[in-house]
Design a protein around this nucleic acid. Structure first.
Length: 505
RNA sequence: GGUGGGUUCGUAUAACGGCUAGUACUCAAGAUUUUCAUUCUUGCAAUAGGAGUUCGAUUCUCCUACCCACUACCA
């Protein structure tokens, strides 16, 4: 039994989407549970779609989530370029591996599994447009390849000449006819597809001397001794081609097992989750904030105030379940509990409310000291230079009322600065001369701990008096208990705020 | 259009072919509280439709409907 080796192989065409993070997470969990390796490979075989900064974004995102590759382009902050004992398969960036793919493409041509094609992109585009005009679809396959310009239809000397003269030819897979490809998916079970419905995919491009996804993927998975391929459902349609490629290379014995994960869907309506949904519905779809080369920015879970543990937890529960009623899992707990056969088949709609609930749970699990340390810099930005011990006391009082650390200020700013405004509705209701006088009298003649007792003893209307006082202390009729507030700001400040309110109103 | 995949409360999901179809989020009501929030209790709410197999189907088979993905010299 060979060691479990899985890979996450994103394309650096933009920021990593939360669905991509989930794929990486499941790969990581699977690897660690089996005592295996998690490899990060960059599939940058499309030079046209390369986006600067995307690779670094991917690396940072995984690191923020606590997902560290055992092998890959960047491990522990070190860029890996050359092979070593720890990184025997370096480099892990396909653009840097370009030298190795051509011979595999040629090997397939030599064995009759592939052929050279000389049709230009424009010619094919024209064919497609023509077919579409007739309500049909042009497919490069057994039906059409005989009438196209390739090494199957052209004389040998002509092929030789074109190969030497032109620089825009490709190598295409010769999709067999009349084969039923029998496949097994770890999540979906047995799947069979008739090869006649498939097309002759381009495997290698002379123009940039690079393979396409399909070739690079199979060759690298083979070379890197990948044992399980865990990827998104959008790859399921190309699984037959991948099976056939393993077969054409004669690598069936070491072919990895496949698992296709359900897609992450948008919260409302249909379709997969996209950047637009996040903007529209007010939640992030990316792990970290991203600024595109054109200057557009997209919000991230990290900047929105999510704890990475909460983000990982909520992602894990989207499409997988432990089979028990436990919902809160640390990363090590996920490693222990994860199982591919508990992964669902249907796409999962993302629910922003539940995401917030997860963060709330994690916020409560954090210690007051941790949260205070996290909040302190934000307080400084508000111009508040508070004593850490005091901040910790405040945190203990308010953490149950918050979802994010960012919420703390809105909840408890009045424990640091006097309210500047008073909520009109609450003023109408509670700012009455008789209540005010009673509140002033009560506070003047008692302490935080004896205030309630005093109000009761003098038969004052508890709700009215307390809320009038609260209005003075917080600016509204909602908030913490008066006793707690007074403990924090002190009786003198309380009296000062009462008098201030009278002046202002 | 073709090919493949999918379908349990609004959402995420549970249920060896066998209890009244369970849980969480959301929402609503009530209790607690000096207010708000928290907390607690309760409630609303689902097996897409139709055949078949079976003593018995959410579960197995088929058909229909709907949804999704793929259908590039993109991944």
């Amino acid at each position: 039994m060979s060691k479990t080796r899985v890979r996450f192989a994103p394309s650096p065409t933009g920021p990593l989407h939360m669905g991509g993070v989930r794929t990486a997470l499941y790969n990581y969990l699977f690897a660690k549970q089996h005592g295996g390796d998690f490899i990060l490979r960059i599939e940058d075989t499309d030079s046209n779609r390369f986006v600067p900064g995307a690779e670094q974004y991917i690396i940072e995102s995984l690191r923020w989530c606590g997902i560290y590759p055992d092998e890959g382009v960047d491990v522990d902050g070190k860029v890996v370029e050359t092979p070593s004992e720890r990184h025997p398969h370096a480099p892990y960036r396909q653009s840097q591996r370009r030298g190795i793919y051509r011979k595999y493409a040629e090997q397939l041509v030599a064995s009759g599994h592939a052929y050279y094609a000389f049709d230009t992109a424009e010619e094919l585009e024209k064919k497609r447009a023509e077919a579409e005009a007739k309500g049909q679809t042009f497919i490069y396959n057994h039906l059409t390849r005989g009438a196209l310009r390739n090494s199957l239809t052209l004389p040998a000397d002509e092929v030789e000449r074109l190969l030497a003269e032109r620089t825009d030819w490709t190598v295409r897979f010769l999709m067999p006819e009349g084969r039923v490809v029998e496949m097994d998916d770890l999540i979906r079970g047995h799947i069979a597809v008739d090869s006649a419905t498939l097309d002759d995919k381009v495997l290698w491009k002379r123009a940039d001397e690079l393979p396409t996804y399909h070739l690079a993927n199979i060759v690298d998975d083979h070379l890197m001794e990948i044992t399980e391929v865990i990827r998104g459902e959008e790859w399921l349609p190309s699984l037959p081609l991948h099976y056939l490629l393993y077969e054409a290379f004669g690598w069936q014995d070491s072919q990895p097992r496949f698992a296709h994960l359900p897609l992450l869907l948008k919260p409302v309506g249909n379709g997969k989750l996209s950047k637009r949904d996040g903007d529209k519905m007010g939640f992030p779809v990316f792990p970290l904030r991203w600024t595109s080369p054109t200057g557009e920015t997209s919000r991230g879970y990290r900047e929105d105030g999510y704890f990475p543990e909460a983000f990982v937890n909520l992602l894990a529960m989207l499409g997988w379940n432990p089979g028990t009623e436990q919902e809160i899992f640390s990363l090590p707990e996920l490693v222990a509990a994860f199982s591919l056969d508990k992964v669902g088949k249907a796409g999962a709609k993302f629910n922003p409310d539940k995401a917030k609930w997860f963060n709330r749970e994690y916020l409560r699990m954090h210690s007051d000291a941790d949260l205070a340390a996290c909040w302190l810099p934000m307080l400084k930005e508000k111009g508040v230079d508070a004593d850490p011990a005091y901040v910790e006391r405040v945190v203990a009082l308010i953490k149950e009322r918050a979802t994010f650390v960012q919420d703390f200020w809105d909840i408890a700013s009045y424990l640091f600065v006097a309210p500047k405004e008073f909520v009109p509705k609450d003023v109408d209701k509670f700012y009455k001369p008789e209540f005010y006088d009673m509140a002033l009298e009560a506070l003047t003649n008692s302490e935080a701990d004896t205030l309630e007792e005093y109000v009761r003893a003098h038969e004052m209307p508890m709700g009215k008096v307390m809320n009038c006082l609260r209005l003075a202390l917080t600016g509204s009729a909602s908030g913490l208990g008066i006793t707690d507030i007074l403990h924090c700001i002190g009786k003198e400040e309380g009296l000062a705020r009462l008098r201030k309110m009278k002046e202002v109103l």
